[in-house]
Design a protein around this nucleic acid. Structure first.
Lengths: 215, 215
DNA sequence: CAATATTGAATGATTATTCAATACAAAACT
DNA sequence: AGTTTTGTATTGAATAATCATTCAATATTG
């Protein structure tokens, strides 16, 4: 009896594993396809071919194309969130070091590469017309900004910086990052990840002139 | 003879006027349609209805949908360019005043409104896949950045500001503008044009701390 | 009466979605 | 152990909808 039940369990896990492999395979294929062909030219058929499953299956698995796209956006969003959440929560690190790590993350090859940026921008461009996209993006932004504000506030206090509020600095940072990501897509030869990061660091340097870590 | 010829001329102008009215009507309708429904959902049929001409005519007039879209992007791009070109060339104005006018223009209701921003972002998102879009956007950006750099360089010299180069400041400004435009689209209640402009001005204030015009 | 502008219905291509048919694997039964 | 049964996973061809493009027919203008 025990054996039978554990066998069943094992088989069930195995099955779920298989299922989630296909699930992730399709999401990866969606991201790759959007990056390669653009959202406008991303069809179920292209995604299915990329994922090496049949067209019918891709649709069946996610119920609809819309749902597959949304799941892919959610995946990207979660991946990004995990990467910065870890940094914000690292209490061992000095606030300035945390900020530097956030910058590093925002322009790391894993996050700020042309494939992922083109997917982000593709979704951004549709946000106004698909409330479901907006809610995924907005929810993430809000938390990021909140944590960023808290962090900047700490730095402001320590550095006795009063001319710019924490909100102002985090909003400026955030919009600069968005703008630079766009630029990486347009002209990656000029806008290398290193260049973008250094631009941002110089922004902080001009605000916190006495902080040596920004030198 | 003179009369005949001038009549002919008048008629030809009249005709061109008619033609260009339809031309512009379709471009306006394209921009409105993209703003209202998104690029993905912009069909010749929607644009034609908006412009109050037949579907066949819209296509005939612009040879293809692609061409209509490109012409609309070109129109937006030209309109924007004219607005900043005038300011950059205004030699009577003090460099700092010119910079302030550029900011004002970049966040004026005519330029930074939700309709136009959503059209810009729609095209941006396809830039990687349509070389023709890229060339329109890139050409404009290059000149803007070049002029901006020249202007900032003047201000740097006058203010004896040396820690940030003119290139660095103009790149930062430019990407911040792009990022803020995006934000106006996402959350117009928080990101009002005034708020965005003041954020930018504060950026300049932190760089040129002795310049009273940024207060 | 030309000549030109404009229409709108027809065409063909593309694409999301459906679903009957098939492959596959695990379980039940000799 | 081998065979059959059962249930699930996956396929791929058929369907129906949408859309850009074409073009013969019609309207408009000079």
């Amino acid at each position: 009896m025990v054996t039978a039940s554990s066998k069943q369990l094992a088989s069930s896990i195995e099955k779920n594993k298989e299922i989630s492999i296909n699930h992730q395979k399709l999401i990866d294929a969606t991201i790759e396809t959007i990056a390669k062909r653009g959202l406008a030219d991303t069809t179920i058929s292209h995604v299915a071919k990329q994922a090496k499953v049949s067209q019918g299956y891709a649709n069946f698995r996610f119920k609809s194309k819309e749902n597959l796209l949304l799941s892919s956006l959610q995946f990207l969003s979660d991946e990004y969130k995990k990467s910065w959440q870890k940094i914000f929560e690292d209490e061992h690190l000095d606030p300035v070091d945390r900020l530097l790590k956030i910058c590093e993350n925002d322009f790391s090859k894993k996050i700020a590469n042309r494939n992922k940026i083109s997917v982000w921008i593709a979704f951004y461009s549709e946000v106004k017309f698909r409330p479901s996209y907006l809610s995924v993006c907005q929810k993430q932004d809000e938390i990021y900004l909140q944590q960023m504000e808290k962090l900047i506030d700490e730095i402001n206090t320590k550095a006795n910086q009063k001319s710019l509020s924490a909100i102002e600095i985090s909003e400026s940072y955030h919009s600069m990052v968005d703008g630079l990501w766009q630029r990486i897509l347009f002209d990656p030869k000029i806008y290398t990840n290193e260049f973008c990061k250094s631009l941002i660091i110089k922004y902080f340097k001009s605000i916190y002139q006495n902080e040596k870590k920004f030198q």
